[in-house]
Amino acid sequence: MRNLLYLIFRYSAFLVFILLEIFCLFLITNYNKSQREIWAHSSNLLSGNLNQRVQKLEDFFTLNAINDSLIRENARLLETIINYRIQSDSESFQAFESISQDSSINYKLIPAKVCDKTINLRNNFLTLCAGKSQGILPGMGVISKDGAVGIVRSSSENFATVLMLINSQSRISAMIKSKEYHGNLVWNSEEIREFRMVDVPKHADVAIGDTVVTSGYSISFPKFIHLGVVRDLRIIGGSNNYDIKVELGYDLARISNVYVIAFDKADEKIELISAQDE
């Protein structure tokens, strides 16, 4: 206590100075118009700046949650676009056959993260950090924000393996957009972006630069998922079909977030097709 009193006595001049200066500042900022405005503005700047910094920090910590919610949102939007595209494409038929709207084809998108992938082998696979518990089943198509990626080959409780387009076994039902010629997209096992489209009949008026999209004939992909562009076409001697070189429009080496497409009438379609085979 005595030390404290001594300290106060020792620095009494400084304390009085500080107290009076603070009082003066208080008077200045309260009783002078221009100074008050400057004070209000400056303190707003300071507090605004501080608030902004705190907000940035907060944003950083919630980045993961925001990312997840954005991915979900993206999935929902893509879902809407895909379903809308299919509906608007078949609208004329629907009007003709007077089929009600709610019986229209419905695709659902399940967002998933890529855990692991190979891109430099002959048979490349993708591992997803989502599985049966999220509703991912074998046979479902996988797309990224740019286009098709592959087809789910097997799924466990929490993981799924995807047979990518860049796999020698991959065979995707594709078509030339706006010309409706249908064929199959296979990988020639060399370049990651170079594909071959086979089984297109040679009377088709395919031109270089045409867009190639999924056909929607399989259960894996809906119609009009982007694939690539026709780069070169020739007819092999003695064959009835074109051999079309297709360049993929996006980079399969750089995907990290994908969407798995669940077709809610897949079982019905599979049943029908397998019944045909028998």
Binding site: F17, L20, E21, F23, C24, L25, F26, L27, I28, T29, N30, Y31, N32, Q35
Partner: peptide, 9 residues
């Protein structure tokens, strides 16, 4: 109010 007082202090 406060300007001259502050300077004097």
């Amino acid at each position: 109010l406060g300007v001259h007082a502050g300077a004097c202090t």
